[in-house]
């Protein structure tokens, strides 16, 4: 109550706040009351020093560690994701390559099969043609043989017929040499 009374009485003087400042730190305005300065400075030094110590030794390294851990983790996860993506890409590329290879192989198999079949067909065809040609040649040979034989026979028949004709016409015998000569001349004409 006593302190209340004193403040009551000092209210009026306190309204002149700058007055306290002008008097050089004295007066009743608490922030300029220099008698409290040593205590405030000492306790500020203790408390702020303690706070600085706690911050620099405990709190800040811990928060820095947390942030660093998180950054490392995120970077690690990103790297892992990157690696997996690269692996996937590689797998896809390998798959596509295998697919292309298989396709090429299939194509080449089909092509070689086709070529083989074509060659076989061609070979069979030429063989058949050869055979036919041979048969044709044989047939030709036989025909010309027969023709020759026939022609020879034609000569004989012609001579005989001529002999008969001559005999029946003139009733004379003509020699064989003369007949042949005449037939040959007739044939030549």
């Amino acid at each position: 109550m006593a302190s209340e009374a004193t403040t009551e009485t000092t209210v009026h003087t306190e309204t002149g706040v700058p007055g306290g400042e002008a008097h050089g730190g004295g007066g009743n305005f608490p922030p300029f009351d220099s008698s409290t300065f040593p205590s405030q400075l000492l306790w500020l030094a203790i408390m702020f020093g303690l706070f600085y110590y706690l911050m620099s030794k405990v709190a800040l390294p811990r928060i820095a560690g947390i942030l660093e851990d998180r950054e490392d983790r995120i970077a690690g996860d990103l790297a892992e994701a990157d690696r997996l993506k690269r692996e996937t890409d590689e797998a896809i590329a390998a798959y596509e390559q295998a697919l292309a290879e298989a396709r090429n192989k299939a194509h080449s198999i089909a092509r070689t099969n086709r070529e083989k079949l074509e060659a076989e067909v061609e070979a069979k065809r030429t063989a058949a043609e050869d055979k036919l040609n041979q048969k044709l040649a044989e047939a030709d040979a036989r025909i010309s043989e027969i023709k020759e034989a026939a022609l020879k026979e034609v000569d004989g028949i012609a001579a005989e017929t001529a002999e008969e004709i001559v005999a029946s016409l003139i009733g004379a015998k003509v020699s064989k040499a003369e007949l042949d000569k005449a037939v040959a001349a007739g044939m030549a004409r």
Binding site: S39, W43, L44
Partner: peptide, 11 residues
């Protein structure tokens, strides 16, 4: 005077 005051307490 280095008293522990209300100011010290709030620090």
């Amino acid at each position: 005077d280095f008293s522990f005051t209300n100011s010290s307490f709030f620090m």
